[in-house]
């Protein structure tokens, strides 16, 4: 029987070397839509070619194999500790075998741990599940896109953004404008609306795990996602920021009830590759 740590290793490999299908399809559509010989079309062509080479040669899409972020939904029969150990074992093996770039650096000594583990590294979030199966979602989050995240407290005087969804829309546009092409567009933009900073940040990050074609259930959020996407793409930043019509592939918004006194908007950016996948065990 395949061991859990081998399953973890395999999902890490798959996530590092291949694009999620919805993302690849969206990139192809963007490539088709850009004008011939535009820098944006050429950038998209290289992205698709890179994806082909990475998959065929089983090597990472990008040299920044990211911060591994695991979201585990654990059935009653399994302990969190057992799952955590398998994740760490699988990650250490994958760092050697894929290989991944060792990215975990000790803040005090500036030493790289060499195996992608350390204090709060990787990030692992646990939830108890009522189902019989273990579900592990993995995101390999590159630093370029993580550095591009933004955080707003509404109201925001500079943007004239009030405490409503139109204020949220202004934050989204400002965040994408501010990062320009530095975080490898076309982006997936994750948005979290909440009354505490931690909740807003967690919601914006988990929004990136939603499939691009997965529609938000609430009409107001659905409408805002579509409008924000179309407005981002009208900014003209384009693939890799070289000018063009495709700056984002999707906008995904999560929200929580907020404290009546607080209105936080957190923006998480995923680069064009938005490396994510799921293991069902």
């Amino acid at each position: 029987m395949l061991r859990l740590k081998d399953g973890i290793k395999e999902i890490i490999r798959k996530t590092a070397v291949s694009l999620p299908r919805d993302v690849e399809e969206a990139l192809k559509a963007a490539f088709e839509a850009e004008p011939e010989e535009s820098p944006s079309k050429e950038a998209l062509a290289q992205m698709l070619e890179n994806a082909r080479i990475a998959k065929n040669s089983a090597r990472p899409l990008c040299q920044d194999t990211g911060t591994p972020i695991f979201y585990a939904r654990v059935p009653r029969e399994l302990s969190f500790a057992v799952v955590e150990k398998s994740i760490l074992d699988g990650l250490r093996t994958a760092t050697e075998s894929v290989p991944l770039r060792p990215n975990a650096v000790d803040v005090l000594t500036e030493k790289n741990s060499g195996d992608n583990t350390g204090l709060f590294f990787p990030e692992i979030y646990f939830e108890q599940s009522e189902q019989d199966t273990l579900v592990v979602d993995l995101s390999l989050k590159g630093a370029g896109s993580e550095n591009a995240g933004a955080f707003y407290k509404l109201p925001d005087e500079r943007l004239k953004a009030g405490r409503d969804l139109d204020g949220v829309r202004k934050c989204i546009l400002d965040a994408v404008y501010s990062i320009q092409g530095r975080a490898c567009p076309p982006y997936t933009v994750g948005v979290g609306i909440a009354g505490t900073r931690l909740a807003a940040a967690k919601l914006s990050r988990t929004a990136l795990m939603r499939k691009l074609n997965e529609e938000a259930p609430e009409p107001a959020i659905n409408e805002l996602e579509k409008r924000a996407l179309s407005e981002i793409n009208s900014l003209g930043i384009g693939a890799m920021g070289l000018g063009g019509n495709c700056t984002a592939l999707g906008v995904k918004i999560n929200h929580a009830h907020r404290h009546t006194g607080s209105y936080f908007v957190d923006i998480s950016i995923a680069c064009w590759a938005n490396r994510r996948s799921r293991l069902v065990w």
Partner: peptide
């Protein structure tokens, strides 16, 4: 000189 971000496998070749 601007290279395509994320094209790690293609550029390594």
């Amino acid at each position: 000189l601007h290279a395509i971000g994320g094209a790690g496998a293609l550029l390594a070749e």
